[in-house]
């Protein structure tokens, strides 16, 4: 019994509505995953198995789709998702030092992508399409252009203050 996973009833209720909206057929898989990703910032394993059952797919197939598309994540993400552009333009303008500076600032070690307090996730993306502003980062929906390691400190200070840290 101890291994029984559980989720808030509201989540199941919400998910049922989403599934009902898109129809319980395999073709509903991607739209349903998108909604779950939007709500939880990641795709919890239990919900994926649940979705598989509801759409009559095997969990392995659902996992395959969820790992195929870059828009989905299977790991819980932080409240603030920091994406560092590492497209060509940003790369030559020093995106990697920025990336390292951010990781150091939020104290990410051992290849982890999300801080233990669940506040920040840091990842790289290829070309955000704002090369004129290189190097570029985004935090959730906010875009920051021509960032420097010093600017990073300021930006994160602000966010941490907002979180009462």
């Amino acid at each position: 019994m101890s291994r029984t996973a559980e989720v808030d009833l509201n989540v199941v209720d919400w998910l049922n509505n989403v599934i009902a909206e898109h129809g319980s057929t395999p073709s509903a898989l991607i739209p349903v995953l998108q909604e779950v990703q939007k709500k939880h910032n990641y795709l919890p394993e239990e919900l994926l198995t649940y979705i598989a059952t509801a759409l009559n797919l095997s969990p392995a197939t659902v996992y395959g789709v969820a790992t195929f598309y870059a828009q989905f994540s299977l790991d819980p993400k932080g409240k603030y998702i920091i994406k560092v552009c590492d497209g060509t333009a940003c790369h030559v303008r020093g995106s990697l030092p920025i990336y390292e500076a951010i990781r150091k600032r939020v104290k990410l070690v051992d290849g982890k992508a999300t801080t233990d307090d669940g506040l920040f996730s840091v990842e790289t993306v290829s070309c955000l399409g704002a090369c004129g502003l290189a190097p570029v980062i985004t935090i959730n929906d906010q875009v920051y252009g021509q960032v420097t390691p010093e600017a990073i400190d300021l930006i994160i200070d602000v966010l941490e203050k907002r979180e009462g840290m």
Binding site: T4, A5, E6, D8, E45, E46, T49
Partner: peptide, 26 residues
Amino acid sequence: RRIDTEAIKINQPENAPVDIQVCVGT
């Protein structure tokens, strides 16, 4: 059970005197 899973918890509700679980496994 079809798949062995670690317990994961999403939005665990607050403490209340009675605990009810409804199974929604396959």
